[in-house]
């Protein structure tokens, strides 16, 4: 099962990004193997529609769970439609690795 954790950088020690559509990077975690892979967010600085574009990406990556700080209403509707689970973590100053360790 693939899980995406929004990240400010391209490694597990990077801080968790609380933005979804405007996160800098996406960390794709394979929960079975613990393997991680990072993708840069091309829509980070889009004028509008960053959230929905990001959902496109999530569906293409075949993700079933997204962990972020919040989801906009449009992104939420779409994620719902594709049965992708949303998880909201509001903690400050946690790294992607901290989040990964919490899941385990």
């Amino acid at each position: 099962m693939k899980t995406v954790i929004t990240s400010t950088g391209n490694e597990v020690n990077s801080l968790f990004d609380k933005r979804f559509g405007r996160a800098a990077w996406f960390c794709v975690l394979d929960e079975a193997t613990g393997e991680t892979k990072f993708y840069q967010n091309e829509n980070k600085d889009a004028q509008g529609g960053a959230g929905t574009k990001t959902v496109e990406k999530m569906v293409e990556l075949g993700v079933s769970k997204v962990i972020s700080g919040d989801f906009g209403p449009k992104a939420k509707d779409l994620l719902d439609k594709f049965n992708i689970q949303m998880v909201i973590i509001q903690d400050d100053d946690v790294t992607v690795d901290d989040v990964i360790r919490k899941i385990k």
Partner: peptide, 20 residues
Amino acid sequence: DCYVRFTLPHHHRGRRCPIC
């Protein structure tokens, strides 16, 4: 327990917190 908020889509069986 860990205060995260989340949705539970249909295929996620079991009513458990996805984090803890």
